[in-house]
Design a protein around this nucleic acid. Structure first.
Length: 343
DNA sequence: AAGTACCTCAACCGCCAATTG
DNA sequence: ACAATTGGCGGTTGAGGTACT
């Protein structure tokens, strides 16, 4: 197929749209909506195929488009999303209101790829070019779906190969392992922090202002389970870093509570009565937490409904957009939003 | 000034999956 | 159940503009 059947039935215009055509399409859709695209050109009096009308509307005419150059924030976000999603432009565009997949794709191909190379980063794998040249065996991102079947144990990864690279120093500061999301908060984990298996982690490079490495913490890290006390040693204001958690990648971009981790939590052998919360969340303004003394072990004995009984509203959750799973000290849960993060 | 190379970006192409009849 | 149609996506193209020689 390819070209739709309507294109064969009559001689249709191709190429750039004239202002008159734009006007016709805009007027028609504003008044009637697009409905079935294949019938739009006829109704609107256009010598175009429906597919062409759809594209013109989506990429140029619809009123919610943000015009003009991409901001630095947007560029950074695209780079981070690309590291996770690869060339899934429509999914990337879904995280940038007012931007189309087409323009993001164009920006990537014409500009961002080049910028990354200049920084010494491979735009396909998002790894340092020097690492690639030296023959690293690490597989490139994005994580394939098949890799996202995490096991459900929270384990200490200190000393494991997944995390030891985070302990190197750069710029006279420790090379923090940042966890977080695509919002505007960044949480740092000092070397030795405990990471959930199955997590995707990034290491923030202050020189480049972005993640330089991505690590997928092995699902079968053999260490024991514990998370005594605070997991996050500091909070910095900045941009996103990586995904940390147990939620499937696709779900991490959904808009409502992600229920899939329920089973994961229930199966967790996390067994600790101290103050650490195991928080889960997803994007936008929703997050799921376990309250009070409901450590995951205790919650695992609750009914399914109680596990998700506490859905935090916007006011209690500072995170935005894509989120995975995280942990934070309970004494900061309600009052110091920036401290616990939204992961 | 002219020719060429490069860049940007709107639009098309071809494929796939979902929907429709 | 099947084929045709449709919507959606990522890859690619090429016109027009700009920079360089």
């Amino acid at each position: 197929m390819g070209r739709h059947s309507c294109c064969y039935k009559q001689k249709l215009r191709k190429g750039l749209w004239s202002p008159e055509e734009d006007e016709k399409l805009l007027r028609y859709i504003t008044k009637y909506g697009h409905g079935c695209w294949s019938s739009v050109p006829k109704q609107a009096g256009l010598q175009r195929c429906g597919k062409s009308c759809r594209l013109r509307w989506i990429n140029y005419l619809r009123p919610d488009l943000k015009r003009g150059a991409f901001s630095q924030d947007e560029e950074n976000l695209i780079i981070e999303l690309h590291a996770v999603l690869g060339n899934r432009w429509s999914q990337i565009a879904a995280q940038l209101p007012g931007r189309t997949d087409n323009e993001i794709k164009n920006l990537w191909n014409s500009c961002l790829k080049k910028k990354l190379r200049l920084r010494g980063i491979d735009p396909i794998t998002h790894k340092l070019l020097t690492e690639i040249e030296s023959g690293s065996d690490d597989k490139p991102k994005p994580v394939e779906k098949s890799q996202q079947t995490y096991n459900h144990h929270l384990v200490e990864t200190e000393g494991s190969s997944s995390i030891t690279t985070c302990s190197t120093n750069q710029n006279n500061n420790s090379d923090h392992l940042y966890t977080g999301n695509f919002g505007f908060q960044r949480l740092s984990l000092e070397n030795g922090s405990r990471i959930a298996p199955g997590s995707d982690l990034g290491i923030w490079n202050p020189q480049t202002g972005r993640n330089q490495h991505h690590h997928h913490v092995d699902e079968n890290v053999p260490s024991a389970v514990v998370l005594p006390g605070s997991m996050f040693s500091s909070v910095l204001t900045g941009y996103r870093s990586s995904n940390l958690g147990l939620i499937e990648l696709e779900n991490s971009f959904s808009t409502g509570p992600v229920m899939t981790e329920q089973q994961q939590i229930q199966e967790s052998n996390y067994n600790n009565n101290n103050s650490t919360f195991f928080g889960t969340g997803n994007n936008l303004n929703w997050g799921l937490t376990m309250e009070d003394n409901q450590n995951p072990f205790a919650i695992s004995n609750h009914s399914n409904s109680s596990l998700y009984s506490d859905i935090k509203s916007e006011t209690n959750f500072f995170g935005t957009e894509a989120t995975n799973v995280g942990m934070w000290p309970c004494n900061q849960l309600q009052t110091q939003q920036h401290a616990y993060g939204h992961i």
